[in-house]
């Protein structure tokens, strides 16, 4: 099984997105992803794969890569889909969600990023002068300046 080189936390310039579980750790290797998915499958959770190239922290609804995968027994099947997604969208964020359908929970139980663009330029803080000397602050992702699908493409440094 091929394994991916884990990137250094906070490596390079820019800002490393942290969203979901494990995002403060170095990127998971395929072997670790496999083990995490298997953990969920062994508990009867359903796997789905999502992607986006909008890094805004409020962007929680990502695009789905195919249908959610129910009835899986072996995590390798899900990992293969992750790999297919990565190959098709190398400059996107990709995450795995594990949904717990248990009666008392019925929600996403575990969600983690499995792919990120080679270079994440980060955010700038924008100030807006309002009336009465009110100043509003907002985050602006540098990547969001470019149209969808091209946000992280051909970054030069990637």
């Amino acid at each position: 099984m091929e394994t991916r080189e884990p990137s250094r936390p906070g490596g390079g310039q820019g800002l490393r997105i942290t969203q979901g579980t494990f995002s403060y750790l170095p990127d998971l290797s395929d072997e670790q992803i496999l083990a995490q998915i298997q953990y969920g499958l062994d508990r009867g959770w359903a796997v789905s794969i999502e992607f986006t190239d909008d890094p805004h922290p409020r962007n929680v609804y990502w695009e789905m890569w195919g249908m959610p995968m129910f009835d899986l027994r072996d995590a390798m099947a899900a990992l293969r889909e992750v790999q297919r997604c990565r190959e098709a969208l190398p400059d996107h964020y990709v995450r795995v969600s594990l949904y717990d359908p248990g009666l008392t929970r019925q929600t996403t139980a575990l969600q983690f990023i499995v792919n990120r663009p080679p270079h994440e330029p980060g955010f700038r803080l924008e100030r807006e002068e309002g009336h009465d000397r009110v100043v509003r602050y907002t985050l602006h992702a540098y990547a969001a300046d470019r149209p969808r699908g091209e946000r992280y493409r051909g970054d030069g440094r990637g």
């Binding site: 195919g66 899986l72 072996d74 099947a77 899900a78 293969r80």
Partner: peptide, 14 residues
Amino acid sequence: APRTREVLRRAMGG
């Protein structure tokens, strides 16, 4: 293709 792939995914590991 999605149908076949789905079956293959379910059978993975077995």
